[in-house]
């Protein structure tokens, strides 16, 4: 862990809202976290929890009517919020790179791989096409693509999904960014390819000291990859801490529920030899338009009380382990039953 080093990214009380006809919707609500160089932060949540929008906010790619309305984003000490569009563009793809979920959709279908890579280099530095092509080839080789020279001349449809995601990762690595935001990049891939890519990303970031934010709904991926975890629910971070703290002794009832609804390969069957049924969180994730006051998880929570109608405070349970809850689970309760 790199807690003593100066963090690459400091996000403080970041708020992103979407103005709509039925009033504004807060997609990201006072989200704060840090990522250190070489550290992997897992950003976990269900669809619509605001985890992807947090990523886009950091990149400055929130489309109108969305807008960052509060908080700060500091990259290596430099405040990004309020930066002119031109300067933010210069940072994108250079200091902050992003990898998207669906590799079938992220590469432009009518442009060759080399075109899409060379333009990424040349958008940020004055180098010749040949030099940029060389960098592109090296990047492809680094992410384990065989015969990169040939792949450079290919069109996206000539590559498999796993190969395309490697190309997207190579594009992200091209300019040696300080921070990579990966938005569920392995969700669309086979588990074996997923494992390879996870391992490679981890190694590449460790070696180069790149900070990595890994956005996912998959706790199993986080367990194997991340140093620290933030759990998001309805736009807020409800719990954050080291991976071990959050996954082994979850304090927020939502985290506990998420863990319980994760199928595990090593579940003990019951006496009759049948697998145990998965536990579910009762109810549905709320629409951001009609969030309940106070704790948004309140209607689905078994521990909720009238107190929960107030906005819950951040409770520090252990060093670096914070939950936003009036009734956090104790370490003993949080242990997996």
């Amino acid at each position: 862990m790199n807690a003593q080093r100066e963090p690459t990214l400091v996000v403080g009380r970041l708020t992103t809202r979407f103005a709509g006809l039925g009033g504004a919707v807060t997609a990201v609500d006072e989200v704060s976290f840090n990522v250190a160089p070489g550290e992997v932060l897992g950003l976990v949540g269900e669809s619509g929890s605001g985890k992807s929008m947090t990523g886009f906010s950091i990149l400055g790619l929130v489309d109108p009517p969305g807008e960052i309305t509060g908080g700060s984003i500091r990259l290596k000490g430099r405040e990004l919020r309020g930066l002119p569009a031109r300067e933010w563009r210069a940072l994108r793809g250079d200091r902050i790179a992003m990898i998207f979920q669906d590799p079938m959709m992220t590469l432009n279908p009518v442009l060759r791989i080399d075109t899409q890579m060379i333009e990424t280099v040349r958008a940020h530095r004055r180098v010749s096409r040949d030099a940029a092509r060389e960098m592109a080839r090296d990047a492809l080789a680094r992410v384990g693509i065989p015969s990169p020279d040939e792949r450079l001349r290919a069109y996206p449809h000539q590559l498999s999904g796993g190969m395309r995601q490697r190309v997207a990762i190579a594009i992200a690595l091209l300019n040696a960014p300080d921070l990579i935001i990966a938005d569920e990049p392995t969700t669309a891939l086979d588990v074996t390819i997923q494992a390879q890519i996870l391992f490679e990303m981890q190694t590449l970031c460790r070696e180069s000291g790149t900070a990595l934010i890994w956005i996912t709904h998959d706790l199993a991926v986080v367990a194997g990859l991340a140093d620290r975890v933030c759990v998001m629910y309805a736009g807020r971070i409800v719990e954050q801490g080291s991976t071990a703290q959050v996954l082994e002794t979850p304090a927020h009832p939502y985290t506990r529920g998420l863990l319980d609804s994760t199928p595990a390969a090593n579940v003990q069957p019951d006496k009759a030899g049948r697998p145990q049924p998965l536990r579910q969180i009762p109810g549905m994730a709320p629409s951001l338009k009609e969030l309940p006051a106070g704790c948004a998880f309140r209607p689905r929570c078994t521990r909720a009380s009238t107190l929960c109608e107030q906005t819950p405070p951040e409770v520090e349970l252990a060093r670096g382990h914070v939950a936003r809850c009036f009734h956090p689970l104790s370490a003993a309760e949080g242990l997996k039953s």
Binding site: L59, L61, R89, A90, L91, R92, G93, D94, A97, M98, F100, D102, M105, T106, L107, N108, P109, E119, T120, A123, H124, A168, I171
Partner: peptide, 12 residues
């Protein structure tokens, strides 16, 4: 997505 990705690459 490819347009969003192109913007994320910092293209003009």
């Amino acid at each position: 997505d490819y347009v969003k990705f192109a913007r994320a690459k910092g293209l003009s």
